[in-house]
């Protein structure tokens, strides 16, 4: 991400957030049931505007479900969500407004393999077109898509079918599809999962720089704890659908890590590279 993908000036210079930054989203006692199973229990969270909130935890604890709750793909069975400037997300109108300002990067890319990279990025702008229009995508939108691809360093592959791209390239197309929306809230579900581990450090650094420059509010699910510690302003640790830790990276000490990644004795030889 060499250039800032957003069209606005954004937060300038300073890398530190003001201590009393306003909340962008407030979750209050959210409980989500899927298939008769309680996946999230009483999750209360304040997501700070302009901050990067990293969600960590073992697989199956409900990280993806938390992202899907924030973008409305999953409706909680109880609890409320409030969004700055919109209010409580209860009616269709509030959700429409929230979704217009939100973009999601999906864990499994969620791209269409036979379409080109730029056509996939254009899908991020599908809400700006009439679904039955037979006209080609307007030039202005195609230009935005091309710029978004450029911002993730993939302009040269714009016309290649996504099915022929590598995992890391696909992930970047997914990121471009989110950024092209020029969102206020960016949700990302393990966006570096299919990136070459050697590149994750650089990519996550670029990611942080880019979202900072745009002043984006980010909720990002990460399974590499070191990446989370490196880029996040706040860490949220989930255990069995509950918030087990919520604080700054500095406060995420070994005791807190033990609480979030508890019960991993059998796997510990595989996880020794975790800090």
């Amino acid at each position: 991400m060499p250039t800032a993908p957003c069209g606005r000036a954004g937060r300038s210079g300073g890398d530190d957030l003001p201590g009393n930054a306003p909340p962008a989203v407030v979750l209050d006692q959210i409980t989500v049931c899927l298939g008769g199973q309680m996946v999230l229990r009483d999750v209360s969270l304040v997501i700070t505007a302009g901050a990067i909130t990293a969600v960590v935890g073992r697989s199956g604890v409900g990280k993806t479900t938390l992202i899907r709750t924030l973008n409305g793909l999953v409706r909680p069975c109880s609890g409320t969500a409030q969004v700055a400037g919109i209010g409580t997300l209860d009616g269709a109108e509030a959700w429409r407004a929230h979704r217009r300002r939100t973009a999601t990067v999906f864990q499994d890319h969620a791209l269409i393999g036979r379409l080109s990279a730029i056509d996939n990025v254009l899908l991020g702008l599908a809400d700006q077109r009439h679904p039955l229009s037979l006209l080609p995508w307007p030039r202005a939108l195609r230009q935005r898509a091309a710029m978004a691809l450029d911002s993730v360093g993939l302009l040269a592959r714009a016309n290649a079918p996504v099915g022929k791209l590598s995992g890391g390239e696909r992930q970047r197309v997914g990121l471009a599809r989110a950024l092209v929306r020029d969102p206020d809230l960016l949700l990302a579900d393990e966006p570096f999962a299919s990136v070459d581990p050697a590149l994750v450090g650089q990519l996550s650094h670029d990611f942080r720089a880019a979202v900072r420059q745009c002043g984006l509010t980010v909720v990002i699910v990460l399974h590499q704890l070191d990446t989370a510690l490196a880029i996040a302003d706040r860490i949220v640790g989930l255990v069995d659908g509950r918030v087990a830790f919520n604080g700054t990276p500095c406060a995420f000490d070994s005791a807190a890590r033990g609480r979030v990644f508890h019960n991993l004795r059998a796997l510990s030889p595989l996880l020794k590279d975790m800090p």
């Binding site: 793909l73 979704r99 217009r100 999601t104 890319h109 899908l123 599908a126 679904p131 039955l132």
Partner: peptide, 18 residues
């Protein structure tokens, strides 16, 4: 999955089909 991505952006059912 791509349809869900569209729905998460607030796109209508018809547009997901299209």
């Amino acid at each position: 999955a791509p349809g869900e991505a569209l729905r998460s952006h607030g796109v209508s059912r018809l547009a997901v089909l299209r």
